[in-house]
Design a protein around this nucleic acid. Structure first.
Lengths: 196, 196
DNA sequence: GCCGAATCTTGACAGTGTAAACTTGACACT
DNA sequence: AGTGTCAAGTTTACACTGTCAAGATTCGGC
């Protein structure tokens, strides 16, 4: 027999709602996101999402978490693309960062607004604790930046500088603050090379 | 006679609504902003704001414009604070930037999301056109960065690098991505000095 | 004094989040 | 089979929001 459509127990409503939310955000922006529209798009009653996410903010956090997962994978694949030199890896990860921000502006912005931070509040300020509090992508950034840390300087300074530069550039581009057509990726790489 | 309270013609409703909106955003964030709450806070009927701003987005733009005005003035005062050396001016403007972003996180974020850009679409890519399309504060940034532009490199690269770095750092701090207590201002100045 | 235009009010409607009570299906246990 | 329990969705209801249309009031120029 074919799978009967039971009125209850959607199967994987949680994922379906997140997917619906992503498509709504992609089409009409974050402001257009609503619990009821996601419910309708998933073919479910309007109050169902609240059972899974509590409230609208919960849904946004779930969407942001999914977006973060895609973002890290996207960036990691870009890091492995070019040569195996440290510089090629740094360029790759940053170009991936910018490409994702350009391709998915709304999702990218959500990652930083609706993803929880400092979850476990670990003890010492060691590397592992930093990775946890700064998000799943920080380990990749740290490894990539390591070869460019001059002797005697705190690695955090370099990591923070690279991250701030790329993040700020991505957002300024996204909001059109860098002119109608933004600077080329080569400009970013040139800025990057001025650091290391 | 004392000024009679006339039911119509509030006097300066436009400004009052913007002020109400700012206080709401300061207290409960951008999400809590609503036309009706601003109207109530200004002692006016619920549909009055639409007459001045068209819709909610119009009000947001007006608030962002006011926020932008305060931001530029704030930053300009910081630029004139220290010594008259180029480096002191650069440090001053960046510290002002960060101080404003820390003091008024919601207003700072609004500036980049709701302020229109590229208004006149000027002809040549000269300095004046750049100032117009990139916002009123760009002239200040350009003047401050000028002494640090090495011979033979495009000034835009330096300006963009400084702006991206400070903007990205401010937002990463704001969202707690740089740890529970963010790096000190000296760290930012150190990063800045690595550029010039 | 008068008339148009600007300013604000009132009333209404659709869409939204959210809470409560209810219905249905799945599963374990006896 | 019968039963209890629990999770998943539905239904109903309410307050709040943006937005529109129509009316009231006041201002400014003539």
């Amino acid at each position: 027999m074919t799978k009967e459509k039971s009125r209850h127990h959607h199967g994987n409503l949680q994922a379906a709602l997140v997917e619906a939310g992503i498509s709504i955000i992609r089409a009409d922006g974050l402001e257009a996101l609503s619990l009821r529209k996601c419910a309708a798009m998933a073919g479910v009653s309007h109050a169902a999402p609240a059972h899974h996410f509590g409230n609208l903010d919960g849904l946004k956090q779930a969407i942001a978490q999914e977006a973060f997962a895609r973002f890290t994978q996207f960036m990691r694949s870009h890091a492995d693309a070019g040569d195996d030199t440290p510089r090629a890896r740094l360029h790759g990860i940053c170009l991936g960062y910018l490409a994702f921000a350009r391709a998915e502006p709304a999702l990218y912005a959500m990652i930083f607004c609706y993803t929880p931070n400092t979850p476990p509040a670990d003890k010492g300020p060691n590397d592992i604790a930093r990775d946890r509090t700064r998000g799943p992508a920080y380990q990749l950034l740290r490894e990539t930046c390591a070869p460019f840390v001059p002797a005697g300087t705190d690695p955090v300074v370099i990591e923070t500088q690279v991250w701030s530069l790329v993040h700020g550039f991505a957002l300024l581009c996204q909001h059109g603050r860098l002119g109608p057509e933004p600077p080329s990726d080569e400009t970013v790489l040139a800025m990057l090379d001025r650091i290391g």
